[in-house]
Simulated assay, not measured.
Amino acid sequence: MVIALRRFPNPRLTGLGGGIFSAAVMFLLGCLDSLLFDGGPLMYGLLFLPVAALTALWVRPADLVTAPISVPISFAFGSLPIAGGTGGTGGRIVAVITTLALNAGWLYGGTLVAGVIATVRKIRMIRRRYR
């Protein structure tokens, strides 16, 4: 299994790059969810978890603290296509806030995933440096 995991790409994104990566992927997944599943929050939430994990895995060790911060922002940005809303900008903002409130479990879960991965990576890096 370790050999199979080593075959995966190992990019090292900066903090800004990790935020842009997760925001772009979540916006594309939001558009895809809106087209295929009529904006159902279940698929969007399920797809958010691996994006959060990949963002935390691919960010540089120096920028580990940014992963749990950029992931919820990308969730909010990606929810624009599935939020709906009518009545101009105000209606769109209310729809996004409502979507975030109704999907808080997915939002907290993905943030927790990113936080745990970043913390474990940081602890391993400190132990490696200590040795």
Results as ranks from 00 to 15, higher is better:
1 M>T: 11
3 I>Y: 13
3 I>N: 11
5 L>I: 06
6 R>H: 07
7 R>K: 12
7 R>A: 13
8 F>W: 09
9 P>F: 10
12 R>V: 12
13 L>F: 15
14 T>Y: 03
15 G>I: 07
19 G>A: 09
22 S>K: 01
22 S>R: 00
22 S>H: 02
23 A>W: 03
24 A>Y: 04
25 V>K: 07
29 L>D: 01
29 L>P: 01
29 L>M: 15
30 G>N: 02
31 C>D: 08
31 C>R: 09
31 C>E: 10
32 L>C: 08
33 D>T: 13
36 L>R: 15
37 F>H: 15
38 D>F: 13
39 G>A: 09
40 G>C: 04
41 P>H: 10
42 L>W: 11
44 Y>P: 03
47 L>V: 08
48 F>S: 14
49 L>Q: 14
49 L>P: 11
50 P>E: 05
51 V>A: 09
51 V>Q: 02
53 A>Y: 06
53 A>M: 07
54 L>M: 13
54 L>G: 09
55 T>S: 08
57 L>Q: 14
58 W>S: 05
58 W>V: 00
59 V>C: 04
60 R>H: 13
61 P>W: 07
62 A>S: 15
63 D>Y: 03
67 A>T: 05
68 P>C: 12
70 S>L: 12
70 S>I: 09
73 I>H: 14
79 S>D: 08
79 S>M: 11
80 L>E: 08
81 P>F: 06
82 I>A: 04
82 I>G: 03
84 G>C: 07
85 G>E: 03
90 G>C: 01
91 G>P: 04
92 R>T: 12
98 T>E: 10
99 T>D: 06
101 A>C: 02
105 G>M: 10
105 G>D: 15
105 G>Q: 13
106 W>Q: 00
109 G>V: 02
109 G>E: 02
111 T>H: 06
113 V>A: 13
113 V>D: 04
114 A>F: 03
116 V>M: 14
117 I>F: 02
119 T>N: 07
122 K>G: 09
123 I>A: 09
124 R>P: 04
125 M>H: 14
130 Y>S: 12
131 R>K: 13
131 R>D: 02
